[in-house]
């Protein structure tokens, strides 16, 4: 399975942000499949193979999860907590990609074991650059955990 086969799980409830994130990924020639979960519940269903994703082959893990914090139903912090508690997702690369840089959010995210914390800039060009580097790093440079 090559790098490009791996999906990117984008957890994002704001359709504009979803569109812009996908645009930024495409713009930077990242051709991996992008799965979008629109809230925490959907994200967990995908990763645990439950609900609408019941029966999904859990051997296929995303290369990276791009996780927004402010989400309907289950928020990003809670998603992160449940992933880290789960034996199969403990080591899954999770990048928090969110609007706020409130100290509490940053601290909570790192305490729960996020791999990186990125604040979405207002400037789309900066955002696009951040996404490019993200893709470069997590899809090409990073050696994923052997799970």
């Amino acid at each position: 399975m090559s790098v490009n086969d791996k999906v990117i799980l984008l957890v994002e409830d704001n359709p504009d942000d979803e569109a812009l994130a996908i645009r930024a990924l495409k713009r930077n020639h990242i051709s991996n499949e992008i799965v979008v979960a629109h809230d925490g519940v959907e994200a967990l269903e995908y990763l645990f193979g439950t609900g609408v994703y019941a029966g999904r082959d859990l051997r296929f893990k995303p290369a990276v999860v791009l996780l927004d914090l402010k989400l309907p139903r289950i928020d990003g912090i809670e998603v992160l907590r449940r992933l880290r508690e789960d034996e199969n997702n403990r080591l899954l690369p999770v990048v928090v990609l969110t609007t706020s840089s409130e100290e509490k959010d940053v601290l909570d995210s790192y305490s729960l074991g996020c791999n990186s914390y990125i604040r979405k800039p207002v400037d789309f060009l900066q955002f696009s650059e951040a996404v490019r580097q993200l893709g470069m790093y997590w899809l090409l440079m990073n050696e994923p955990p052997p799970i």
Partner: peptide, 20 residues
């Protein structure tokens, strides 16, 4: 906290789609 999250999000849309 709410300002930090909610006020910036629409700005990103405006900027992002202007750029698009």
């Amino acid at each position: 906290y709410s300002v930090s999250h909610d006020l910036r999000a629409p700005l990103r849309s405006i900027d992002g789609f202007s750029q698009a």
